[in-house]
């Protein structure tokens, strides 16, 4: 049988328009990973450091400065803290950035500034927490 003709050429202008690969996957991946952290780890961390520790539950010594500092200066502890702090920041600030729509900011220079501030803060938090955690090792 003769070969079927198969349209595989671009058929109109819009498909010929050159499409540029977006770098958004970088931010979206950090946002997604941060979502897992914010949903599963962060509540537990808040419960422990925000409620249990100040109330001395189960015992005041458990979260004494020495113990907490020893935890943060171990490799595993530092890695845990880095993941929780950094990815939560990327997650939260990505959301804050995209919430600009709710404030009626959809495009333009103001949006670029918000983007810079949001991702800049996340990057800053990431770099600083890495620096301090490594310095304390």
């Amino acid at each position: 049988m003769a070969e079927q003709s198969m349209p595989n050429q671009s058929l109109n202008q819009s498909s010929q328009r050159s499409l540029k690969r977006s770098n958004e996957p970088v931010f979206w991946a950090l946002f997604g990973a941060g979502g897992v952290v914010a949903a599963f780890l962060l509540p537990a961390v808040i419960l422990i450091t925000g409620l249990a520790a100040p109330l001395g539950i189960p015992s005041p010594e458990l979260f004494s400065y020495e113990r907490a500092s020893a935890f943060a200066s171990s490799w595993a502890g530092a890695l845990f803290l880095f993941i929780v702090i950094s990815l939560s920041l990327w997650h939260g600030l990505h959301r804050v950035y995209h919430s600009s729509h709710e404030l009626g900011i959809h495009r333009g220079p103001l949006l670029s500034v918000i983007r810079l501030v949001c991702y800049g803060t996340a990057l800053g938090g990431t770099v600083l927490s890495a620096y301090w955690l490594i310095a304390a090792l």
């Binding site: 049988m1 070969e3 349209p7 595989n8 058929l11 202008q13 819009s14 498909s15």
Partner: peptide
């Protein structure tokens, strides 16, 4: 309609298969 065309909305087989 232009967008619909641009996504190639039809099956593009690896190799065409004859009726037989």
């Amino acid at each position: 309609l232009q967008k619909l065309e641009s996504i190639h909305p039809y099956i593009i087989p690896k190799e065409n298969q004859s009726v037989e």
